[in-house]
Nucleic acid binder design. Sequence first.
DNA 1: AATAAGTGGAGGAAAACCCTTCGGTTGCTG
DNA 2: CAGCAACCGAAGGGTTTTCCTCCACTTATT
Lengths: 220, 220
Amino acid sequence: MAENTTRLRADARRNREQIIIAAREVFLEQGIHAPLEEIARRAGIGIATLYRRFPDRHTLVQQVALDNLTLVGEELDRAAGAHPDAWGVLTQLIRRLVELRLGVIMPVLLPGLEQDARGEGGTLKARRDQLYEQMEQLTRAAQQEGRLRQGINPIDIWLGVIKLSRPLPVVGAELNRLITDQQLELFLGGLNATALDASEPLRRQPLTLDDLDRHLRMAE
Amino acid sequence: MAENTTRLRADARRNREQIIIAAREVFLEQGIHAPLEEIARRAGIGIATLYRRFPDRHTLVQQVALDNLTLVGEELDRAAGAHPDAWGVLTQLIRRLVELRLGVIMPVLLPGLEQDARGEGGTLKARRDQLYEQMEQLTRAAQQEGRLRQGINPIDIWLGVIKLSRPLPVVGAELNRLITDQQLELFLGGLNATALDASEPLRRQPLTLDDLDRHLRMAE
DNA sequence: AATAAGTGGAGGAAAACCCTTCGGTTGCTG
DNA sequence: CAGCAACCGAAGGGTTTTCCTCCACTTATT
């Protein structure tokens, strides 16, 4: 979004943002093969404008991914500034990500992440990995505080956020919000440390970022 | 599925079952407006056969819903037979439902539930409500055992199961299974009783079945 | 082996979707 | 505030998807 974006006329930049916001939602709901016309419709702009700004689906997806990464980074910083403890930072972050539908779905689950797609902060993959690092520090800190359950990694959290944010079809927007909020609280409860001491420990081998990437590479 | 089904020829009944299985998956993935041809494709039958068995989308949806209810009931009985304690029953049930993609999405979240759709066990709505009763007894029992967290109702569990079972698009089937399993463990951890005693209690007003129905009625 | 029950593919109509062209509008600069 | 470059969206042609029916062929059942 670097200088490329800055030279845009005011209305154009506004539209571009609306497109990305709409695309974020639609992609989260329907996947990255969702009809582009639906995105244009929801952004309140003509289909031509979308094509002018993003020549094909691929670049739109990439840009949404970059945008998501940036926003998540910002939210992370903001949360870090608002809480002295890692657990506080983590829970605020999760709440915000869910609230903003910031499913990060692209950065985490995008096949062919390595190719092109570079914003001001470097490759898509590079930035994702960097964000992962930050998240890992955060989760480790929260675990050392004794607040975050052991054995949980950023992947768990990202995927959880995605599953939470993703609306159910048929159900309307309002109800979806309610449902998401309910499940969010349960999710946070599950992350809580003392659950570990419960009679039934987590029985599983955690997923790693590499696991994800490997599977995605195979699938596509 | 009463006598109506029984008089079907053997191959016809087999096909009918395949259709319902495929529809269950596709509906869970894409919602009840998913293309019927996709369902036929996945069931491995011709589109004509689908239309012959289910004249329109509405009846197919209803039949899938009935089928789901029946299966959930069976799994509940089976789980009850396999464990002496309510918590054991509950967790086995949840695992099975997720495993079978038995999202119950229809019975819980179907708009216009009251109209028609009666199987051998009565109205769709009636059977759903009855199942809810059973689940409520189960959850209450598990809470009295001190194993299930307070303030959790069957709605939480059903919706959780739906969100867990629902696959992410783009991602392949195998990876989706992994993701679901991971999140399932977290979910079960969140249900666990001792999490309640943690520093941060659930902050929320639980959803009720009536809430759901009311919203769905408004939306459609 | 006869027959009733069941099957899938072809295909026309309608809708959704992709993507471009172009006459008109609007932000920006001097 | 005029004039130009940047930007816009509706229209529409071409393609694909989806719906749903008809009908010649296959198969379970007796």
